[in-house]
Design a protein around this nucleic acid. Structure first.
Lengths: 217, 217
DNA sequence: CCCCGGAAACGTACGCTGTAAGGTTTTTGC
DNA sequence: GCAAAAACCTTACAGCGTACGTTTCCGGGG
């Protein structure tokens, strides 16, 4: 079957599912040839009968995740009510996002890949189709795809997401920071006041994601 | 000097500039302890007197690049004419982008870092200050910062930037692709027709960057 | 029945990485 | 001029990806 690259003939996707679960539990750095081979009960070099190398393994990892996004989207959109291109894209991005939240390592891994996974083309194809149906020209659709950035894959850069260790900023350091970055600290104070109560949620994630999303549409 | 982390006392930033030039010429994968130490005429282990480890070296790399962005921005904005917050941000993002174009490895490296470089705070502080002056509330400013995504650092995900090796797609493959991804191929055909002449520029970069930018503002 | 040919897994080995431990040289302050 | 401290070097180890040679397994023709 020379036309298309059939993923793995025999124990093939067992490798990938094993690798995904390793990445989920121990981080992507733990995805090593020996570690994966041990997980499927095999010696390291045997992997080379199913994969050309480490890079292909990582490519397979992101491909697996993106395929999960694709299938999840098709599940969500099973009930075929047409609700307009904006709501459709919105729901699609949010679906992608929930998948990515299950595999925190995926965004950074995708960012490091040099080639984009073939399954990602399917996503972009679907997005573009929706845009065209919505009356977009090809040109505008093209620009729109660019504008979405990494949203089709369900993530945006964390900004100060984890607040970087934030181990008890010790008032003097905080004061120094307030002096050096007055607006940022004022903003933080203001935002924390608004979000008092729901810890962990003051900056990150879903609200901001949806805001940016609605802004773009 | 326990309060602030002075970068490197003696040969300190020589390490970083050497590392940057290595990354520029040979790729970020070539930035290894031994390679960098050899570049400054020293043995590998000596680096540990100036850096706690490899991660710190990479952190220093991104910090160097971001600082370059900061200084470049301040140079550009030297002539103090106030041209409104939108034009200011626009020019700032484009400045960041030109710096990043000189160090193609920087975006992916930044994406992989767990902590954001301290110098990046300076950039966000400046952005927020401009927004506040422009009449934004802290809350809206906060959302705006999120919406900018990675633009303050001068990059967006490449989408199909290098078209992935694109080695002579051999008509049959192209036909298969056209069948599987009809809208995408139609769009490509349409866009290529528009941009006939300026090769390499049909998809990537500056135009799209500016479009997204203007859309957000 | 045996045998054997090819695929799949194994084992060994090499060069590379980051870095822990400890010895040696150079610089510096009194 | 001489100790103390900083900078440097040497050695060593575990782990990585992977090239290469050997072994094991299994199905079809003599």
């Amino acid at each position: 079957m020379p036309t298309s690259a059939k993923r793995e003939p025999l124990t093939g996707d067992r490798l990938l599912t094993a690798a995904v679960s390793i990445a989920d539990t121990e981080g992507v750095a733990a995805v090593t040839m020996r570690r994966v081979s041990a997980a499927v009960g095999v010696e390291a070099m045997s992997l080379y009968h199913h994969l050309p190398g480490k890079e292909a393994l990582l490519d397979g990892l992101v491909d697996t995740v993106v395929m999960e996004v694709v299938s999840q989207i098709s599940i969500v959109e099973e009930s075929g009510a047409d609700l307009g291109w904006q709501a459709t894209l919105r729901r699609r991005f949010l679906t992608a996002r929930t998948v990515m939240l299950c595999h925190p390592w995926a965004p950074v891994l995708i960012a490091t890949r040099t080639s984009i996974p073939p399954s990602a083309f399917a996503i972009y194809e679907g997005l573009l189709a929706t845009l065209i149906e919505g009356g977009f020209s090809y040109h505008l659709g093209h620009r729109a795809l660019h504008s979405f950035g990494s949203m089709p894959l369900g993530f945006v850069r964390g900004l100060f997401s984890p607040t970087a260790g934030d181990d008890d900023p010790s008032e003097e350091d905080f004061a120094a920071m307030a002096e050096a970055l007055p607006h940022l600290t004022s903003m933080m104070a203001s935002e924390i006041q608004i979000h008092q109560g729901d810890t962990l949620g003051w900056c990150d994630s879903r609200d901001e994601f949806e805001f940016t999303l609605d802004l773009l549409l």
